[in-house]
Design a protein around this nucleic acid. Structure first.
Lengths: 209, 209
DNA sequence: GACAAACTAAACCGCCTGGTTTAGATCGTC
DNA sequence: GACGATCTAAACCAGGCGGTTTAGTTTGTC
């Protein structure tokens, strides 16, 4: 509708307020957790009055769940390499492995994981959003890719889905654990590459032909 | 009999107070998290007055950290099977795999993991206690075991430590992830066994001889 | 220049928090 | 049977919480 369009444009500058709030809240919530962040702190961080926040979001819980779900959907990396026909297997496994393994230890990745795991008892929707939009997605894509590779005689798998799970699980390695527990917030990229190469080697030794 | 019973209960009641508090607090904290549990709730759950809690523990943070660290140290399962000389490799891997994988999806294991991951930014000591007393311990034991097996010509590993990490990582599988995110609080034991068998098969296919 | 919508800062509400203090009850010990 | 330690319930504190309200200001449109 024309009136609505004009109105939207007119309020354009205003309408950025919700986005400001989302970004500020995401920063605080992801860094400090649901309980440790007050709405006053969000207002301060966003440079916005508390009343404005409550004009756009029903309550603290909705704002939090909204943001974490958004983060779950947004951060998931490109896995287009798994859509094409299988070429060089080692190359493909290394590529997808590096992308996934680096996400797992990235600050955003760690923070998101922390929030989902910590709050999923009170926000069950977060668990679903995270798992379906992340681990499950990449597992299904990889399993399909591996099945195609097997059909081409490049692999000898028992169960493609189990094989995909195993490969991905090897990427959720001790560096991931150490990042989650705060012991090693930023593992060296070379270390990550070593783990990915190790996983690829082992995978191909077990299933390659 | 009656007198002795009364006496026992009286004596026990006094000495047991700190333990009552610990147990009640552990129950609540592990189930609901640091922020969501009030000291009044702990007092109620323990059947004790708040003043008594503060007579035994400096403050909420100390009580919490104390308990989680205790849980980290306590729950770690028996891995004596890795101390002996390597016998049947498949059998040993299956055994240690089942113990570890079942811990990972057990309610206590999941709750502890959740607490450590959620609160380690504010309680860095928890990360250390968990990692050193858990994943690192079992990884070192398994690596040493694998190295001995290799010396006996039963395996052809590149790096025993990496191999141990890979095997254990495969046990931290999607069931673990689904338990952490609340999607599947209690995976069927048969499912766990399948994952452990899969990890063992793959490990031996890659490294066995 | 009038007008409605979106915004602002700040006061305000009731409630709950972690933590302390009171005054008194119970207990084992000497 | 009295003492010191340990416990109790309950009142109390200052402060922060989520959330609302108020009263007034900016903004773009007609």
């Amino acid at each position: 509708m024309e009136t609505a369009g004009k109105l939207d444009r007119a309020v354009g500058a205003r309408a950025m307020k919700p986005q400001q709030i989302r970004e500020a809240a995401a920063r605080l919530f992801l860094a400090q957790g649901y309980g440790a962040v007050s709405m006053d702190a969000v207002a301060r961080e966003a440079g916005v009055s508390k009343a404005t926040i409550y004009a756009h979001f029903a309550d603290k819980a909705e704002l939090f769940a909204d943001l974490v779900k958004e983060e779950c959907a947004r951060q998931w990396p490109d896995t287009a390499m798994l859509e094409s026909e299988p070429g060089d297997l080692r190359e493909a496994l290394m590529a997808v492995g590096m992308v996934y393994a680096e996400l797992l230890v990235s600050p955003k990745g760690v923070q998101t994981f922390r929030m989902v795991v910590a709050e999923s008892p009170r926000f069950p929707e977060l668990g679903r959003a995270f798992y379906d939009g992340g681990p499950r997605l990449i597992r299904d894509k990889l399993a399909a890719y591996l099945a195609r590779a097997e059909a081409q005689g490049k692999l000898a798998l028992g169960d493609p889905r189990l094989a995909a799970q195993q490969f991905l699980a090897m990427l959720r390695c001790e560096h991931h654990l150490r990042a989650l527990t705060g012991l090693d917030p930023a593992p060296a990229p070379a270390e990550i590459a070593r783990v990915v190469a190790g996983a690829t080697d082992m995978f191909l030794r077990a299933y390659g032909r």
